[in-house]
């Protein structure tokens, strides 16, 4: 069937089986490889993307449900050359090791900060339930708090500018 959606700001129309997981449409049809396959059962979070601003595990999300929606993947998270607050914080704390799970964590964190701009440790424990085998959780937690700060600074400086 024909499916149309907006992905990273771009209109796409695909001819695929509607039950195909969105992950494979993104990776193998649209050739966006930043979204990873980890388990295929929504159990690890490596495939996390945003659909209409909500975090979704794309390996278990049939592509037909994406019809007419707005999708963001890791490739579309940054604003042009300016990294997203979460990516900036990740860079500051040198979080990635092997890097495979990191796009999923970054997308999950970006979604968390939209919902809870200044998460507590408990919020982080409850919301960030992806799997990282290299064990980068310790630096990630610090980076998540830092991302919240960067985001707050950005919002306050934007609102100051808006007031002028």
């Amino acid at each position: 069937m024909k499916i149309s959606f907006i992905i990273n700001g771009k209109n796409e129309t695909l001819e695929v089986d509607g039950n195909t997981p969105l992950l494979w449409a993104i990776r193998d049809v649209l050739d966006l490889k930043g979204t990873k396959f980890g388990c295929g059962k929504a159990a690890c979070g490596a495939c996390t993307i945003h659909v209409d601003g909500q975090q979704v595990r794309s390996c278990s999300y049939p592509v037909k449900y994406a019809e007419g929606k707005k999708i963001t993947t890791i490739e579309g998270l940054s604003n042009g050359s300016e990294l997203h607050a979460v990516q900036q914080a990740w860079e500051e704390f040198v979080v990635p090791q092997c890097g495979y799970c990191q796009p999923g964590f970054i997308m999950s964190t970006a979604a968390l900060l939209k919902q809870i701009p200044n998460p507590t440790d408990e919020d982080i424990d409850n919301a960030i339930i992806n799997v990282c085998r290299c064990g980068t959780y310790y630096r990630m937690r610090k980076a998540i708090h830092r991302a919240a700060e960067i985001q707050a600074e950005f919002i306050s400086s934007s609102s100051v500018n808006a007031d002028k």
């Binding site: 930043g34 490739e75 990294l83 990740w90 979080v95 990635p96 890097g99 990191q102 970054i106």
Partner: peptide, 9 residues
């Protein structure tokens, strides 16, 4: 390799 990894590249 970190910047590339943060961008999913």
């Amino acid at each position: 390799d970190q910047l590339a990894k943060i961008k999913g590249e």
